[in-house]
Design a protein around this nucleic acid. Structure first.
Lengths: 338, 338
DNA sequence: CCACCGTCATGAAACGGTTCATAATGTAGC
DNA sequence: GCTACATTATGAACCGTTTCATGACGGTGG
């Protein structure tokens, strides 16, 4: 099937032969150069160069066991929230010369499972996961087998598994309370599926705020499930909403990409923001402040989130599990307040 | 150092012992289940379950040689342009059940080298790279050793190495010509370092346009090197520019993130766009159209770029190298034309 | 002159899978 | 009853490293 190049990659034995030494010596040159006589070392290095030898990572790892790589599985690599988190992770990892590989599950439990398995089989030190489902049994299993696991952007329901999250209930509450304060009594929530914990939590926060204001969520809250959590999903959802009668006066979007799609649609439809419709997003991504209608959004400490998660992962498998919970803040801009 | 859990992970031999079969049989259950009697298979599967056995990917790969993973190294994982490209890659890969791992070099040749080595040592089928430097000798070496290489967003200077790119000279030309058409005769270009080929090419395109218009680039073009190619970099660069006298009437930004920083700064400084200063960006990211001043930008076919690159990589090491060049288009919005 | 020691290099045993030639067993045909 | 032939299971060889006990060698001190 895969014949790659004409000849096999050079192995350590080939190098040894060319240099006229044993394989053990080549290995020593590679791993503990100080133990080998300069003359010999040079000969070996010349042979390595000549054969353009590259270590076989699989063999190396099979024997040595250890590796300085960690994995991260996020829901959507195209979402700036997750890439900002990834930057936080990378930064922390750099300090310990660890390497990060990112994969995106696309909210698909099967894909998550596949990447998880891939990472585990290749023996990463640990993996940071934004789970696509509420059930984390499979993650506990990974953990039991000895691979570090840190839940990302999601509080852990299990005391033995570390997590770094932002209080999503509070986030939903902040957004809803703000809209209520602005006089809205009927709020649409363009949310993702409740199988994603963050979405369920934000929903709970919204309900909490409505109840606290003496409203009945059944009538005051109109939740719409967005199929894909990006601008296209937001556009589709708001269009559906506009076509039905009985419209709300405010829309709370589960993230800023969805909000972007909403703003875009409202503009083309000639609906004024915030006068005809108030909009609130989530994540406070870089461009939120610069939109034609600057977007009110719930800000999360993305960078710290990632850095802290990496920190916990590197603290080793024997460290006590920790559950870090950051607090979101609301950044009010003109999309929701005139 | 790494003591992982208390006991070693279960191996295929452990499974064999528990199930009362040979290692060969366990391997067969794993890889060609149809060849083993249902009864035996069940016993093996039970043992796998009991020991929560996970294949050792290193050993597997060491022996089997093949792996269905490809790597991508981009300049900045937080840049929507690259993540959009990554989406395109993923989509194509999904068709062949390949898996993508993304790493970000951060414009740093050393990091690029490190990830390249990591990917190569782990035997990926191939790697897509947005090179951080002009010199691609190290990529040729990787290629020679049998790992597929496709240059991403960058035309190849070597005929044997495939590349998928967008015509950056043309992109720069489009942007500059447009600004000239709008009557500007002194244009600032907030560009990245010329070690990044895309930046050098866009510069050449700008110069080409100026010359075609009968202007002297030495006086008509004011190039400023942006330290980091994001909003913060853009903000810093434009502030530096505003503080110096002798200002241009238009700014062309090497990407939309830089343009975002510029727009933000101009707004806080009370400089009107496009009347006092026209702004053009690059990439036409999702939010470009929705900014307070909708941003004129050079659009690149990100999705196709990624998909095509993946396509070339999967076509195998024996396929003829191809050099795909897409054409950018200019999307004019109000940041540059009143 | 010998015992001892330190420095380098060696070669074989792991690591945990896959693969393949071979053996064991059962079935069918004559 | 014997041969021929599937069908399953076996176990050893192998992949390319690292590691470690062992050996070769020369130099020192007694």
């Amino acid at each position: 099937m895969t014949q790659q190049a004409a000849h096999r990659r050079a192995s350590i034995a080939d190098v040894a032969r060319v240099a006229g030494v044993s394989v053990g010596t080549v290995s020593n040159v590679l791993n503990r150069p100080e133990r080998v006589l300069p003359g010999t070392r040079e000969r070996v290095e010349a042979a390595i160069e000549e054969l353009s030898f590259v270590r076989n990572g699989s063999a190396r790892q099979l024997r040595a066991g250890t590796i300085t790589t960690v994995g991260a599985i996020v829901l959507d690599i195209a979402n700036p929230f997750f890439t900002d988190v990834a930057r936080g992770i990378e930064e922390r990892l750099d300090r310990d010369d660890f390497t990060l590989m990112v994969a995106s599950s696309d909210d698909d439990p099967d894909r998550e499972q596949r990447y998880l398995r891939l990472f585990e089989e290749h023996g990463v030190q640990g993996v940071m996961v934004v789970p696509a489902t509420n059930d984390i049994e499979h993650l506990l299993a990974v953990r039991r087998r000895g691979t570090g696991v840190v839940l990302l952007d999601r509080p852990s329901s299990d005391p033995t598994i570390s997590s770094v999250a932002v209080d999503d209930v509070r986030g939903g509450e902040l957004a809803a309370t703000h809209l209520l304060d602005q006089g809205h009594t009927r709020i649409a929530f363009l949310n993702g599926p409740h199988t994603i914990r963050q979405c369920a939590d934000r929903h709970d926060g919204v309900v909490k705020a409505l109840v606290a204001a003496g409203l009945d969520p059944a009538s005051a809250l109109l939740e719409v499930t967005v199929t894909s959590l990006n601008a296209e999903g937001g556009e589709a959802a708001i269009r559906g909403l506009l076509e039905s009668g009985d419209q709300p006066t405010a829309v709370f979007c589960v993230n800023d990409l969805v909000a972007l799609g909403v703003l875009r649609t409202l503009r083309t439809e000639g609906i004024a923001v915030p006068t005809d419709m108030a909009v609130v997003g989530y994540d406070d991504v870089a461009f939120a402040a610069e939109l034609s209608t600057p977007l009110t959004s719930v800000r999360q400490p993305t960078h710290e989130l990632g850095a802290r998660a990496a920190d916990l992962l590197l603290s080793g498998p024997d460290a006590e599990a920790e559950h870090v919970m950051f607090q979101p803040t609301l950044v009010v801009r003109s999309s929701s307040s005139s």
